[in-house]
Simulated assay, not measured.
Amino acid sequence: MKEKLISLEEFWSLRTQIPLIDARSEGEFAQSHIPDACNIPILTNEERIIVGTIYKEKGAIEATLKGFELVGPRFHEIQKSVLDKFPDGKILVYCWRGGMRSQILSWLLSMVGFEVYRLKAGYKTYRTFTFEQVRKNWNLLVLGGKTGVGKTRLLKELETRGEQILDLEALANHKGSAFGAIGQAPQPSVEQFENLMSEELAKKDPEKIIWLENESRRIGKIVLNDHFFDQMAKSPLIDIRKPEADRIQLIKEEYSHLPKEELIAAVNRLKKKLGGLRTTNAIEDILNDNHESWISNMLIYYDKTYQFDLERHSSDTIEILDLSNKDLNESTEILLKLKSIIHGKLTNPTH
């Protein structure tokens, strides 16, 4: 069957109906890719280097011949792999620029009866879109507050009430502190994080508020782009206050069950900032299950860090909200009412 070349606009609707294959090398795929794509390389990492070298030294024809020499013996394996994984007979394919690799894959699959849709201009056109998407202007409402006030829980509860949220820490696989990677999947690359962030933003109504947590520029190894980070700094921020005892209890619920060696490693990463004595005391408390003690020790550092981050917000954009003795349901109701006060109405705020 003959392939159909599709634009990025056509791609958005088809991707929800048809499996997606990335024909680039495993290294390119690992660096970044369209979410939910399956990687079936036409050229492996090593083969891509070989072909690229020949292209530079001898030109396109010699490089093409070498590429077919390398991949040709695997043609039947590629066909069989796709037939096994996607028996329905329809497939979306792409490579870096929609060139030779996706053309070869499209040809191979067409030969065994697949209805193939190939993305024009490939991953490059998708990445251009996601790059621009995460640098647009958005209506943001930021949840701030010291470590342990329950910002993530509030964010999730707001989502259950039909509010638009953007959970940057979930996308980054990191909770944003020295302890933030414990129990998390490996972090994506910055480029892949922006792809994931763009996919989430594409689901939002740009005229409505998006709730998100206050974050530093870095979330683990992820770095937020300057434009979005500046937007966060200029957006209204609700500074949530709760008693230290409540904060310690919440942190204990989330971290006390984690492996001690990983908690200790996180404390050691902060040694220069904590000082030798506080580091030693915190490690001893972890080993002895004195969770309230080591958490209280860490909060001395993290509270100072939060205050520093808070200062990047203009004071006239900050609303202080005391949620002492308020459960999750009551706290959420208060947040929704405060949102209405801040923006004048629940939805469609003016820019």
Rank of each mutant, 00 (worst) to 15 (best):
residue 162 G to D: 08
residue 205 D to H: 11
residue 190 V to E: 15
residue 213 E to L: 02
residue 170 A to P: 01
residue 139 N to R: 14
residue 185 A to Y: 11
residue 147 T to M: 09
residue 209 I to S: 02
residue 166 L to V: 03
residue 192 Q to D: 04
residue 203 K to C: 05
residue 178 A to Y: 08
residue 139 N to H: 15
residue 189 S to Q: 01
residue 205 D to V: 04
residue 147 T to S: 07
residue 172 A to M: 06
residue 164 Q to D: 12
residue 196 L to R: 12
residue 135 R to F: 03
residue 180 G to D: 11
residue 148 G to E: 15
residue 186 P to D: 09
residue 150 G to F: 04
residue 144 G to N: 08
residue 203 K to A: 09
residue 180 G to H: 14
residue 199 E to C: 02
residue 135 R to N: 15
residue 164 Q to I: 10
residue 177 S to I: 05
residue 145 G to K: 07
residue 180 G to W: 09
residue 176 G to L: 06
residue 189 S to M: 06
residue 170 A to L: 09
residue 190 V to I: 13
residue 183 G to E: 15
residue 172 A to Y: 07
residue 166 L to Q: 00
residue 206 P to S: 06
residue 151 K to T: 14
residue 160 T to L: 13
residue 164 Q to V: 08
residue 215 E to D: 03
residue 217 R to A: 04
residue 213 E to K: 02
residue 151 K to C: 12
residue 189 S to R: 07
residue 172 A to K: 14
residue 139 N to S: 11
residue 215 E to R: 04
residue 169 E to H: 04
residue 200 E to F: 00
residue 137 N to F: 14
residue 151 K to Y: 08
residue 209 I to T: 02
residue 146 K to W: 02
residue 207 E to G: 06
residue 206 P to E: 10
residue 165 I to F: 08
residue 204 K to D: 04
residue 145 G to S: 14
residue 187 Q to K: 02
residue 164 Q to C: 06
residue 163 E to T: 04
residue 179 F to V: 10
residue 197 M to E: 07
residue 192 Q to F: 15
residue 202 A to M: 01
residue 200 E to I: 00
residue 175 K to M: 10
residue 181 A to R: 04
residue 182 I to H: 12
residue 137 N to R: 13
residue 213 E to A: 01
residue 143 L to E: 04
residue 152 T to D: 07
residue 217 R to G: 04
residue 206 P to G: 02
residue 187 Q to N: 02
residue 200 E to C: 06
residue 215 E to Y: 06
residue 140 L to V: 10
residue 190 V to P: 07
residue 216 S to T: 11
residue 153 R to D: 14
residue 198 S to R: 10
residue 166 L to H: 03
residue 144 G to F: 05
residue 170 A to K: 13
residue 143 L to R: 13
residue 136 K to C: 13
residue 168 L to H: 11
residue 209 I to A: 07
residue 145 G to F: 13
residue 133 Q to E: 15
residue 215 E to L: 00
residue 161 R to V: 01
residue 146 K to E: 11
residue 168 L to E: 09
residue 216 S to M: 01
residue 145 G to C: 04
residue 171 L to H: 04
residue 144 G to K: 12
residue 142 V to H: 07
residue 180 G to R: 05
residue 212 L to E: 00
residue 202 A to C: 10
residue 165 I to C: 05
residue 176 G to W: 06
residue 208 K to N: 14
residue 142 V to N: 08
residue 165 I to K: 03
residue 193 F to G: 12
residue 179 F to T: 02
residue 214 N to I: 00
residue 142 V to G: 14
residue 147 T to N: 12
residue 134 V to P: 02
residue 202 A to G: 06
residue 174 H to Y: 08
residue 135 R to D: 10
residue 188 P to N: 05
residue 146 K to A: 10
residue 160 T to M: 11
residue 201 L to V: 03
residue 195 N to F: 01
residue 150 G to V: 14
residue 188 P to M: 11
residue 134 V to T: 12
residue 206 P to M: 05
residue 166 L to A: 12
residue 208 K to P: 01
residue 210 I to Q: 06
residue 173 N to W: 06
residue 193 F to L: 07
residue 183 G to A: 14
residue 150 G to H: 05
residue 205 D to Y: 05
residue 145 G to V: 13
residue 178 A to P: 12
